[in-house]
């Protein structure tokens, strides 16, 4: 799996944006990053479940924002001076979806050494099934390659509602 992963996204690995949440360092390819926003005013969506942070207006376009911390079982600390929203464009099976992801702090753009990428142990991590593509090393820290597409498809599309009972 490691090899497959590395060949599939070797270019991506050279150009990753790192951000922090709950003390963990996460990376996504800059290829899917559209912009980084100061936390805008969020409109909460009632009944939308814990992963929905709400809706924002980005120059006339309404975008959903997700807070992945509940999914990763991290504490939701209030927005502060470092908080940002990463606007990501995801290529999902049903088409592209533009979504904001809350980041507690955005670090830097960095390149990862493909050799350093390892599989995620199937037990003993906080990451839910499929959420992480692999774990790499950058300086002396672990960086987690999160699979936002997979997360969006698996965890964000299925909003728990009463309607599903009907």
């Amino acid at each position: 799996m490691t090899l497959e992963l590395v060949t599939a996204s070797e270019d991506d690995l050279k150009d990753m944006v790192a951000f922090e949440m709950g003390g963990e360092l996460l990376v996504v390819p800059t290829r899917i990053l559209r912009e980084v926003l100061e936390p805008p005013k969020l409109t909460r969506v009632p009944l939308a479940g814990p992963y929905s942070a709400g809706l924002i207006n980005v120059r006339g376009v309404v975008l959903p924002v997700t807070d992945l911390r509940p999914l990763f079982e991290m504490e939701q600390k209030p927005f502060d001076i470092d908080t940002r929203v990463l606007v990501l464009e995801l290529a999902l099976e049903e088409g592209t979806m533009t979504i904001g992801v809350i980041a507690e702090k955005v670090h830097a753009v960095l390149a990862l050494d493909p050799e350093s990428i390892q599989k995620v142990p199937s037990v003993g991590t906080r990451w839910p099934q499929g959420a992480i593509k692999g774990i790499g090393r950058w300086k002396d820290r672990f960086v987690n390659l999160i699979d936002v597409e997979k997360i969006a498809e698996t965890y964000l599309g299925a909003v728990p509602t009463d309607e599903s009972l009907h």
């Binding site: 969506v45 009944l47 809706l55 959903p64 999902l92 979806m97 979504i99 969006a152 964000l156 509602t161």
Partner: peptide, 14 residues
């Protein structure tokens, strides 16, 4: 609404 919220059909949009 995006797929993330569109299944919540108590809201028809924003």
């Amino acid at each position: 609404l995006s797929p993330m919220h569109s299944r919540l059909n108590v809201f028809s949009g924003a």
